[in-house]
Design a protein around this nucleic acid. Sequence first.
DNA 1: TTGTAGGCGTTATCAA
DNA 2: TTGATAACGCCTACAA
Lengths: 345, 345
Amino acid sequence: MGIEMNVKGGNLTRKDIAKEAGVSPSTVSRALSGSPLIPEKTVERIRKISFRLGYSPNILARRLAANRSYQIGFALEFQEQRMRKGPIQMSYYSSILDAMIMEAFPKNYSVSIQPYKTEGDGSVRHFKELISSRHADGLVFAGLTQNSRMPFSLMENKIPFVLIGTMPSDRKILSVNVRFEDAFSEMFSTLESKKYRRIFFVGGDLAYYHAISQKKAFLEELGNSRIGLAGELKGDYSRTSGYAAAVEILKMRRKGDCVFLANDRMAAGFYRCCYERNVKIPGEIGVMGSDDDSACHNLFPELCTIRQPRYEMGRIALKMLIGTINGELAKSVLLDQSFISRASI
Amino acid sequence: MGIEMNVKGGNLTRKDIAKEAGVSPSTVSRALSGSPLIPEKTVERIRKISFRLGYSPNILARRLAANRSYQIGFALEFQEQRMRKGPIQMSYYSSILDAMIMEAFPKNYSVSIQPYKTEGDGSVRHFKELISSRHADGLVFAGLTQNSRMPFSLMENKIPFVLIGTMPSDRKILSVNVRFEDAFSEMFSTLESKKYRRIFFVGGDLAYYHAISQKKAFLEELGNSRIGLAGELKGDYSRTSGYAAAVEILKMRRKGDCVFLANDRMAAGFYRCCYERNVKIPGEIGVMGSDDDSACHNLFPELCTIRQPRYEMGRIALKMLIGTINGELAKSVLLDQSFISRASI
DNA sequence: TTGTAGGCGTTATCAA
DNA sequence: TTGATAACGCCTACAA
């Protein structure tokens, strides 16, 4: 025999199980949700019947009764220009998402991406609706620009949320961020041991906290080292900006120089320029990126980088958020990055 | 003045709006869900009041009443070995997910990832529960192995679902797949025009429909061309298997040879080997991959490849699924790939 | 054109 | 230890 399910036309409900077990619907509810009131024997019997009939409680009803969606929204901005190609830059956030899902799964939460377009206060209203309509119990934001007022408006509206990679000026706002100092310090001592003398800095888009904070820490730790600053260039995290930086840097470079780019993507642009001009890495110039972006694991020689604990950040953010939703107190978290020495220096 | 919201302690409901507007709750419902029964004037008034009070219908109640979750599950297998790093290979599916979300968004559906572990018939039961408990109205599967019985069991259990990249033997099962022939045909004529004489084939993991079908089409179209088969190697889609293939191929290669690898990842492994041995691409050997994987856009020289319309596949799969859920008839779809000529040949 | 009332399937409270 | 029963907030016949 197989499993006999849905013999009945409509939906199977508690009632059906109750009838089959000769108990009342509430007993079924209690038995199935692990209430201590019901004796083990009854629980077992009801469980068996439910399994045999293929019954599982209607989650929609449960959610309504609990007034909770058990859903976490991962708010990601989408760009209409890139419509029909990938308006959400999902691949960039995939490891964070991965972490959030795996963290949510055993807690019976699910994660859904909430795409949004920034448009003044409209988006705050949008999120407020998301919460009050119970689409989600809370939100995780990643990649907000530093000057966004969003977190404050969300706060005022009592929306449960956690920021990833954006440092709020208000302590009460929950966030998960990284510390740059230790990784840079390790990077510079490695560079010293490899006899590098000067370093170029190619920064990221300063609209983001990450870029600002990274630059600050870079310069600070550089000051503590015996490496000299060869030059400072602006980038915007794009591969083309890394390429453009390379064009300049390759002109100015001297023996014993290396370059740090604010993310691996830009480093890939740098590599490309070196490839085209037949400049040897690390022979003629050392190259370092940041993020340990898996898309850059294809570069040769392997790119030396600073790893962001993105998976860990996603995991913690979700944990904090669920805690907050359940009324626990949570505190913002700062994680350490790690310097990954590879063949490009 | 700002927006006055949630002055009331509990939740704002239809009733509150009804009272404010001097109508009954059902009128509010109808007005807000675009029923043709209510005159435009009333609708407008109710809408204004709702907006002013910050009311939006409780989606949980709506879902319960409709007996629909308005959620689509994207079923992805996770690997416990890779726990704490990214057990779901999200980045691989990110553009499909991106597409599904954007397609679902305007239709008021949301997409949530449903991680699962394959374990005999247990997973079918898991999915059946997902549906009967109304966690999701339907499921999208990507990357099932060809010999999986899953689709048939799902079918028997009347679970609405669509497969991406797995060709079911049963016509009644909905799927979105790609045709290989035209792209290969174009590839071979390009190779002819570039005076290539022989080609190596490095296949993918033959557990997948994609790999089987790809190989078949490759050999067929090769037969129609003037290019010769230099050798056939096995791969498993991993970078290391591409590297291993390279080791063999570089030994056997002659002038006028090129190689096709079943995906770009393996091609990246091939590149690495060439880099290490200082073999020039395409000077000493031409290289082609498949998928147009964005993670391989960092390769130099740019990798010639065959593009999978992954975004389009995700979009169509979701459209088909929602159609099916709503009782429409849908038909499986075969999309064309496109050959992307780049500097590596 | 609008209102009334029953139903959706739970959970939780209060009795028994 | 169990059983009624009232929420939960919306949708939708059916009635007016």
